[in-house]
Design a protein around this nucleic acid. Structure first.
Lengths: 330, 330
DNA sequence: TTGTAAGCGTTATCAG
DNA sequence: CTGATAACGCTTACAA
């Protein structure tokens, strides 16, 4: 491995000077700078990141933690973050927890060991109380997920508004039997709390009673969607519309419903969440709530960079608007 | 940051002993081992990877290079690699080139600096001649993509067989006007060479002349698929079937064709490639060539680990079989 | 079985 | 403007 000393020798300078060239220090004679550049070129020198991280204060590395990279929502988010990070001179470490608490913690250790200057969490497996201590080692920004705590830097969409808009849309289409089918649990915190409350509020305002049979939780995948359809088919009192927490559930649901002979949207209206590319190519195409993923990623990076640069944050919470995209499934 | 010395002090031993405990050396008294473990626990010690990489010979890190993580094929491949790597004790660095040659080279530098022990490349942007020198610093395994060179460790599917099977299937369905629409170029090397040759061979065997108008290259995305449909609609002599290089092009194509009033498969048959989750939920569901992505990922890791362990490779090429999945679009 | 000490490749400090 | 030198946290001869 060719190192800074080899370059120094080749250029006839000290390794300090080489280091200065690498790091663009201002006061170096043009002559020496040129010599060093040439030597680096000739020897194919590349600075060793381990050594830099070990010695320096700064790693110019950020990490983004997602549960599953095969989930298109997270893939697009990671992509946005990676590209914006790259633009701002950061290397992005992509970390997949597979929903394991221990893996999440292991990735947070990246801060502890100065492997990364900051972390963007797109999901949270552990309690915030267990994560918070890591902020002592570097900034953590939540993106997409959030917690019941005011001072945690967060970029997210307005889940309440999104869900409320979706349910209102179904009601306006004449539906009164609306199933609610989402990711997390029907709990009292974070993302799901907002969605749950919006669902309840929209129904209440329309004077519709809530049917507990039509509340399904912990549904994520296309497979889950198919199973939801089976559930619906088995019901004596079927819903006429379904709100789903992601386009993936929606697509599985739609496919199975179609196969069972249901006409969409006449027999069953379906609305998704995310506006993934798939939403447009489904038949019928999927009405859904569009999340501004690229903007979320960019803003998360911006906020993280501000924190890493010790700049004061104008606001610790950025709530981006969502958009109802009406297609054929409702 | 709590380091090995802090632990040593707390446990009342030397840092060497701590290091030995971390690395599971055999000859340590149970007593001291326990003391060290307790100290590590109490202090919340986590070994610093930079220091280990800098000092040691081994990083227990592998890197996987993909062009775009938002492409579901690569997302699934990365997922398989990450999980298998994790199982075998390796941390996986996920690297996205965005199809930039320079980024690919930058990632190959990971080998040079001992940031990774080995690399899996799922795509190739640069010429192999420019990549080959990096093998001096650590093993490189190709997965999915390949080059015209015998000794390069490669895991891939039989693209020729896959494409041939697909085209034969269309011919058996009675089609003689078959469009060919794929990713790379209609070139003479790698993945595309095999596909191209298979297309030509299948047509030739069936006594069908090749129509150059029906050969489209460099198509990748859903958007590309839509545009292909426009092209078809503008043709005076239209194909009756289309072979596409990925389910994504196929889905864009299908959607636009349906919108234009074409019946699928009667007016236009479509066959995809990959068997992504989307293939099943499309309407009509998509006939496609299934790639064993999970197996590819696992085998790539296995092969890389063998090479990193300096074990001889039984064979440098593993060609996995593909499978025709017949659905409604043909 | 345990400890001492020399590095791995960089950057920060200090002196010139 | 430039250079010597001391860390950063860890592993590994070599000694004991």
């Amino acid at each position: 491995m060719v190192n800074i000393i080899d370059v120094a020798r080749q250029a006839g300078v000290s390794k300090t000077t080489v280091s200065r060239v690498i790091n663009n220090y201002p006061h170096i004679s043009p002559d020496k700078r040129r010599q060093v550049m040439e030597a680096m070129e000739q020897l194919g020198f590349v600075p060793n990141p381990s050594a830099r991280k070990l010695r320096g204060q700064v790693t110019t590395t950020i990490a983004v933690i997602v549960p599953k990279i095969v989930n298109p929502f997270f893939a697009y988010l990671v992509d946005a973050i990676e590209q914006e990070g790259y633009r701002q001179g950061y290397q992005t470490l992509i970390c997949q927890t597979n929903e394991h608490k221990s893996k999440e913690i292991a990735y947070l250790d990246l801060l502890k060991n100065k492997q990364a200057d900051g972390i963007i969490m797109a999901a949270i497996e552990n309690d915030w109380a267990d994560i918070e201590p890591y902020t002592a080692f570097g900034p953590i920004v939540l993106c997409n997920e959030y917690v019941n705590q005011n001072d945690v830097p967060t970029i997210r969409v307005d889940q309440h508004e999104g869900t409320y808009t979706a349910i209102r849309h179904l009601i306006e289409r004449g539906h009164r039997k609306i199933m609610y089918c989402t990711g997390g649990l029907f709990t009292d915190f974070g993302k799901d709390k907002d969605r749950n409350q919006a669902y309840q509020r929209a129904l209440e305002e329309a004077g519709i009673a809530i049917n507990p049979n039509w509340i399904l939780v912990d549904r994520h995948t296309i497979e889950d969607g198919k199973k939801v359809t089976e559930l619906i088919l088995d019901m004596s009192d079927r819903p006429t519309a379904v709100f789903t927490g992601s386009d993936e559930i929606a697509s599985g649901l739609m496919m199975a419903a179609r196969k069972a002979g249901l006409h969409i949207p006449n027999d069953l209206a379906i609305i998704g969440f995310d506006d993934q590319p798939i939403a447009e190519v489904l038949s019928p195409s999927l009405t859904t709530i569009r999340q501004p993923i690229a903007r979320m990623g960019k803003q998360a990076v911006d906020m993280l960079v501000q924190l890493m640069d010790q700049q004061p944050l104008s606001t610790s919470l950025s709530k981006l608007p969502v958009e109802l995209v009406i297609r054929e499934s409702t």
